[in-house]
């Protein structure tokens, strides 16, 4: 019984939140890794792209709520998601047209594009705050829990409860669907394969008649979709605040690099590695150990390795350790 209780506590406070957070990071990192693979630079504006897409979702959600539209137990935001994706697609395509394309024609070095993306980051950052303001927006509605603590206790008779929030469930399900779609697209369709080919060997792709502008176009479209989905899931699970999204850049980069930049599988693995280490290291283990250890060994302190404020430090430490041993990341990087 004690063991079961410990397991329940562990799932409730570590496993489930980490899986949800990991899915969000993985989706974010996929976007970064695709841009890196195809356009060859790290997009500093990715956090703000996520924020923009999510902002559109939030605004459309508010609109639907004011119309009384809802999905019943599911959050209205799911209904607004396609509009967010479309909005984000328009934004990135306009950006590509107005900004990035010129540098491609100039055959600019990737690091120049990194600096360009800083400029784009400033603009998107300002744009989002200009439209929706810098404050928290709560836009999750519908049923709050799939299983609440009370229900779980009644169901199992355990003294510890397990809660699965709707947003966590939705996060995981959506992430699985999106990732499955993405891999199907990259591995099975002609366009997807041409994207991988372009990422692998630009010259040879050109000789094979692959049109780079088309590849870039599809990349941006996919990245916009991924960013909006990742941002919306994160916002539903926590809350939407432009600055937080900007800050997500670090764990997202860390996830993409840990997994191996340019490798989609790596981005997913990296997302979960980062999420799990952040959550485990900043979790107070007292409650779990209480059930597992004999009474006289019960810890008096919280047994929290690091305060939650150091979660960035954790992502970063993991990153350094991985890079020291595997310089190209867990999965071999640099290929889509």
């Amino acid at each position: 019984m004690d063991f079961l209780n410990a397991l329940v506590v562990l799932s409730n406070f570590v496993l489930i939140p980490a899986v949800a957070y990991g899915s969000q990071l993985a989706l974010g990192a996929l976007g970064v890794t695709l841009i890196y693979g195809i356009l060859r630079f790290s997009n500093f504006a990715h956090g703000d792209t996520m924020a923009f897409g999510t902002m559109v979702v939030v605004l459309v959600t508010y609109l639907f709520q004011s119309w009384g539209l809802s999905l019943g137990p599911l959050p209205t935001a799911l209904l607004a998601l396609p509009f967010g994706i479309l909005g984000c697609m328009v934004l990135v395509l306009v950006t590509d047209r107005a900004v990035y394309r010129f540098y491609r024609q100039q055959k600019a070095k990737p690091v120049i594009l990194v600096i360009v993306s800083m400029g784009v980051m400033f603009i998107m950052n300002g744009l989002v705050r200009f439209i929706i303001g810098p404050n928290d927006q709560r836009f999750a509605d519908g049923e709050r829990f799939i299983i609440s603590v009370r229900e779980f206790k009644q169901m199992t008779g355990l003294s510890e409860g397990l809660a699965i929030r709707t947003t966590q469930g939705i996060t995981v399900v959506t992430a699985i669907i999106v990732v499955a779609l993405l891999f199907w697209f990259l591995n099975k369709t002609r366009t997807g394969k041409s994207m991988r080919a372009y990422s692998d060997n630009e010259d040879l792709a050109l000789l094979s008649g692959i049109n780079p502008e088309r590849v870039v176009l599809y990349t941006w479209l996919i990245v916009a979709a991924l960013a909006t989905v990742a941002g919306t899931l994160y916002g539903l699970d926590k809350t939407f605040k432009p600055f937080t999204y900007f800050q997500l850049l670090l764990p997202i980069f860390a996830a993409a690099i840990v997994g191996g930049l340019g490798n989609p599988l790596g981005a997913i693995a990296g997302g979960f590695v980062i999420a799990f280490s952040e959550v485990t290291i900043t979790y107070a283990w007292k409650k779990v150990l209480k059930y597992l250890l004999p009474e006289n060994l019960e810890p008096s302190s919280l047994v929290q390795l690091l305060s939650t404020d150091y979660k960035f430090a954790v992502s970063f430490a993991i990153l350094v350790v991985v890079l020291l041993f595997k310089p190209t990341g867990l999965f071999k990087g640099k290929s889509v």
Partner: peptide
């Protein structure tokens, strides 16, 4: 960490 080497040279 920010740039990918080996772009097109054609």
């Amino acid at each position: 960490s920010i740039t990918k080497t080996g772009g097109g040279t054609m």
